[in-house]
Design a protein around this nucleic acid. Sequence first.
DNA 1: CTCGAATCTGTGAACGTGCACAGATGATGA
DNA 2: TCATCATCTGTGCACGTTCACAGATTCGAG
Lengths: 328, 328
Amino acid sequence: MHDVAVQAGVSRGTVSRFLNGQRYVSDDARQAIEAAIVKVGFVPNRAARSLVMRRSQAVGLIVHEPHSLFVEDPNIGSILLGANETLSEADYQMATLIADSPRDIARLGNYLSGGLIDGVIIVSAREGDAITRAVSRLDIPAAYVGHPRDIGQAAYVAIDNRRAAHAITTRLRETGRSRVGMIAAALDRDSGADRLAGFTDALGDAFDASLVEAVPLYSYGDGQAGMRALLARHPDLDGVFASSDAVAAGAVDVLQASGRRIPEDVGVVGFDDSSWAMRCEPALSTVRQPAGDLGRAAAAAVLRQIDGDPATGEGTLLDCPVIWRGSA
Amino acid sequence: MHDVAVQAGVSRGTVSRFLNGQRYVSDDARQAIEAAIVKVGFVPNRAARSLVMRRSQAVGLIVHEPHSLFVEDPNIGSILLGANETLSEADYQMATLIADSPRDIARLGNYLSGGLIDGVIIVSAREGDAITRAVSRLDIPAAYVGHPRDIGQAAYVAIDNRRAAHAITTRLRETGRSRVGMIAAALDRDSGADRLAGFTDALGDAFDASLVEAVPLYSYGDGQAGMRALLARHPDLDGVFASSDAVAAGAVDVLQASGRRIPEDVGVVGFDDSSWAMRCEPALSTVRQPAGDLGRAAAAAVLRQIDGDPATGEGTLLDCPVIWRGSA
DNA sequence: CTCGAATCTGTGAACGTGCACAGATGATGA
DNA sequence: TCATCATCTGTGCACGTTCACAGATTCGAG
């Protein structure tokens, strides 16, 4: 910066003001500096800026998932890309942090308190999560994708899982299906629990707990297992709501292997609108998750907090349309 | 750090030496400093360290792919996780940089020259890539995953696509298949081109160009389209080597829809050992890509260069076993 | 006992930026 | 003409480290 100042015939202070777009820079100085920057090939040193500003211009994105899920779940990738887009427009660097083992989580605590990170986006936290505790203790700008109930006043961005599940279940019943079951995955996450809640709501008095099969993860294998269990209890079942497309795909394969036709004998609906949906025959009815928008909105929320807006505890719920295709 | 020094009754210099694990720190000083660090709650300021060291302790990972592929391709996710693992063990932060539009690429050039990044890992570069040019011009530590031919002396880590393709093709012929076709995707990448080269090699004089159908991407849709084209030209074909599992899955569906049995009538082999492989009926024979290891090895190569080892132009080829399942 | 080497310690000067402050200039109004 | 104000500019200090260097201490060998 010193070289630029000399070259332009002004002082460091003026160059600094120019670079930060502040007032009180004359047109003459402006032009001289612009030319000098090109000539010198100047690139600002971010480390020095961080040092004096006490800002790192970086936002962490914590993914609390096992490695395997990180690789497979397309929503996570989209959230990541969306967040990255918004952050890089604001000249922030996104740092993706994977939290898998307890060791990872411990290291994360250090990392977050090290001043390397101005804020953090947390994806797929569970209730009672160690990461949630660490983040709220450190009191750094944060936004959650999804909303575990115990995040206090922190910002969150989510889809209305409950409403979508309600809409699906209602439609299944309105199209004449009377014995609708659910394969309810990932009940330890708010997303999974809310989808079940919407299902239960919609059925009201007609709800029968034996028509729900809980499985651990949003995976194809869990879908197969869940469907087998459900069929064993209710061979006459005529509708299935699965917590994810992968689960639905597993269910479809088991149903078809048992000789049932879809959608004639059993209607199936998934969740995510992932690549699984179009691979099923017939194509899956499902819920489109605006994953990119979730990432963008979460990033925007963190940036607002970094700029001084206090977190109000209000969250944003994004729209997630149900896509009706051939499977129900 | 000053506070720690005062608390421990030593000087900043001694604290610095202690923190960096250098020689010439007495046991007394060591213990006093350890206690003081805990008491003061000291966390080193990385910005200040970067400033004086001219090191950012960060490595960029550039993914030159359209956003959609980034989300879908499980290999990229695994490479990313592997690299992250090695880097974070060495206390380096990984910054994932997505290059999609030309605008992204331009911004990337600035970014890389800004001193924010000590080195860079490049995934899925093509020959004649603008990113490759930028990286070699800037002369920063770099490692490629895959090996485009024009990366000069830069380090690379790849699998032996050619040898694997050769093995597959040979085995298809040895099991009695005489009219083996190939759906050759992504010929603009070295991975795609090498798989085709291995196929061609293995056939030798028996090679028939009309048995190869080139398609743009490693996708399911391209697999369907490629298979239809191949079948139209060679209805009597009895083996197919597809450049990826997604392509193979598309091919399988088209073949089965046309009434052909797999593997009795046509043998099919994919590439990647991704989740597509187990979803096919019968399960796909395929090649296991050690994607995590690719990431780890690339990260290690960059770290070596950062530590001063010059790039020798030698690459690493990792083993990729062929997994024989039901489809061939 | 002396000298040199090895070990340990403290000090001051960087690194490249932002910011507060003081000073300079020109315009405006009394 | 002089005070007031807005605009513009330059200077020195601070941010929290690392590193080179000089000084202090200890130890062993001659």
